[in-house]
Design a protein around this nucleic acid. Sequence first.
DNA 1: TACGCAAGTGCAAATAAGTCTCATTTAGAT
DNA 2: ATCTAAATGAGACTTATTTGCACTTGCGTA
Lengths: 146, 146
Amino acid sequence: MSAAENQQLKEVLREHELKATTQRIALLKLLDATNEHFDAEEIYLELRKKQKNVSRATVYRSLESLAELDLVTRLDFGDGRMRFERNKDEDEHHDHLICEECGKVIEFFNLEMEAQQLSVCEENDFTPSTHTMHIFGTCSDCKKTS
Amino acid sequence: MSAAENQQLKEVLREHELKATTQRIALLKLLDATNEHFDAEEIYLELRKKQKNVSRATVYRSLESLAELDLVTRLDFGDGRMRFERNKDEDEHHDHLICEECGKVIEFFNLEMEAQQLSVCEENDFTPSTHTMHIFGTCSDCKKTS
DNA sequence: TACGCAAGTGCAAATAAGTCTCATTTAGAT
DNA sequence: ATCTAAATGAGACTTATTTGCACTTGCGTA
């Protein structure tokens, strides 16, 4: 509810030439406040739970605009729906470990891997724009349980 | 049309405890013969074009069984449909460079990258099963054109 | 502070990819 | 040649996402 946070998000939106609507602000605030990787439906339900009136269509459309402007990132874990994470400031790219049992997502960054990616691109005269590296498997918690 | 190829594919299927149906043989033969990364609909249309009678449901079901047995690999390039490639013999895992302009897919293998992945998994006490590494960007041909 | 209008929203209908049901067919063991 | 579990075809269904269109709202301007 912080007015300061609202104000800041309004500015972020305007800097990117998007109208600062209550729906978009609520959406950004939600993503800012979580470490989870929500899908569109979850975002929709969370916003509703918080008494924000918003429609599914708006959630999808907002996420699209925000992703285009790199304010959020689309994540595809291969299970048929897109997930979204807020692009915290201008921090470094990270990749994901995804637990196939509990769905937990662990973020990681590996400099050497990034370097290898660039070298692969050079070898193939390929100009990279983005990349995704997902490792699927079993997390430590789930190993204990099983 | 080679009877020898048919025979070989029949055996492959049987070794994996799948009935060697004409549909599955045609599907495998198609994937064997191409370097493209077809999606289910494309596979369906290609088979129809070749006068093979097969239904969409069978394409999906066959691809599922074949993927489970590692005879084909599912590829998710994040555009909302799964693509498939034949798992040539028992060769090494490879990753993909995907041209965002022409859709071309270049396969690569990088030993150092695979090693880094394992080390990331260890650091996080994570047991990997599979991974995907996709680099999106512009291929050399498309760079020339633009 | 009120006005205008393009940008944004809500709703419901439309798509798109993939899955499921069930009656019919077929591979392959006997 | 016969039998039966496995596989298939047709189409209905599901789930995620997109779109058309009438209505609303930010926000620049008077």
